[in-house]
Design a protein around this nucleic acid. Sequence first.
DNA 1: CATAGTGACTTGCATTATGCAACTAACTCG
DNA 2: CGAGTTAGTTGCATAATGCAAGTCACTATG
Lengths: 180, 180
Amino acid sequence: MVARTSFETRPCPIARSLDEVGEWWSILLLRDAFQGLTRFDQFQKSLDIAPNILTRRLNSLVERGLFEKRAYCERPLRHEYVLTAKGRDFRPVLLTLLAWGNRHLAPEGPSLVVVDTADGRWADPVLVDKETGRQLDSGGFALATGPRASDRMRQRYRFSSEGPGLPLVENGGQEEVRSR
Amino acid sequence: MVARTSFETRPCPIARSLDEVGEWWSILLLRDAFQGLTRFDQFQKSLDIAPNILTRRLNSLVERGLFEKRAYCERPLRHEYVLTAKGRDFRPVLLTLLAWGNRHLAPEGPSLVVVDTADGRWADPVLVDKETGRQLDSGGFALATGPRASDRMRQRYRFSSEGPGLPLVENGGQEEVRSR
DNA sequence: CATAGTGACTTGCATTATGCAACTAACTCG
DNA sequence: CGAGTTAGTTGCATAATGCAAGTCACTATG
């Protein structure tokens, strides 16, 4: 069996996210849903995607809870695909992809920007800690394994935290083990 | 010719980002590089990935400028794969994927968290405008096409901005056209 | 010396994923 | 009725991914 490897059974949240949206086309479908597209033909025209692939992707996103399938017409039965709360929570990922793409992949200048609607300024998206407002890349932050990390994961990261605000445990050096 | 559709020629920064890192395994390789892995066997063990795929992915990431291939040994010639500045700039995408995954895909609790190393608190990553500190999901921000957007893109977004701070132009309603 | 082990791949083959193009069904409209 | 639209389905071909074995260039050990 050589199906594409599933990351679902891994504890890493990044791997699990990719298991849900990592297939070719999925993230672009989410992008288009954020633009207000809901119908099969809208997505198809926007992306120039094969209908069999589009069907499969839409169904997958519905199954995984990012889209909700709603009837907008009964005769014939017609559905639209609407973002769920889970799907809407994906927006920061899209915005960071957008910022990265603008910075590194748009030598001719940006084609899509985040703007402040009041004064037309272009926003520069950065990640901060919600409570303190401190930038996550400013030093003082690190990744740490949480309470449900696997042993192998614990060996992979320098810090371990058993709960918010609890003292960090510092692990030994990094060993080359599998991230399961 | 039925090669996987390339998004490279599209102006959308999200699509272009996906063209660079959207292949299966690529983002997880970046994750592992952020954890300090650099060598072929480290990546292979961590991900349990086939060596032919790993070779191809590493070479692709090198070609696209996210990794740099450095010799760490001459006899035999051995290389390590090190994040470039472009690769390091991908970190916010990883962190937003992590946050989304923790929120929606970790019913058993988090296995990986961002922590404040000073007091062990768990950070809650949010996206803000760098200059004002305002959250991008708080209202008052929108996506707008930039100076290098295609005409079709302009029809797809409500706002258009020809430069930072310039007045926003409001487009007509959304038409279902192709995002090219 | 020969052998075993390690690391970085390469190769051949099999299954799955993606894409193309034609088709189908259920409608509406002239 | 035929044409057009929408939401798919189907059959087939090529690309992508994965498995497993192999190769090469070393080092270490007996």
